[in-house]
Amino acid sequence: MSVSVSMKVNGKTATGNVEPRTLLVQFIREHLGLTGTHVGCDTSQCGACVVHVDGKSIKSCTMLALRADGADVSTIEGLAKDGTLHPMQEAFREHHGLQCGFCTPGMVMSAIDLVKRHNYKLDEKTVRHGLEGNLCRCTGYHNIVKAVLAGAEAMQAKGV
């Protein structure tokens, strides 16, 4: 049995017929071909699959695609505008906030939501608390924290 699902993904309408049990992350990856969102654990511990649904970060491995029906979804692929990186992406590159890159899309999406939830005012402790649900095995987090603090400032300065 398959059912129709429709949502906005990165500003474009995306529709598909899915089995009701299809997870949002699989809809994004398999049906829409947006493979920037990764699956690291499928038990919502690692955060590699974080996307924004109606502006809030969620772990897309733990949400059914049907629950996002009608929602506004954004993924890592939707961040750069007209060939210009989002300030948070730029900050991750500048501060060497990634090594293998597998956790990075989820980390960046979580970070952007964190910045907005705190109205651009972040300190190291807030960043560390806020990203506790995003695991990284390469970096030891230090450069990620640095990148997020710098990214928050740049977002505010650029009004993003």
Partner: peptide, 13 residues
């Protein structure tokens, strides 16, 4: 990094 931070990496999955 340019690819990886934009979700343009190509992992086996």
């Amino acid at each position: 990094d340019d690819r990886l931070i934009q979700g343009k990496g190509r992992y086996v999955d």
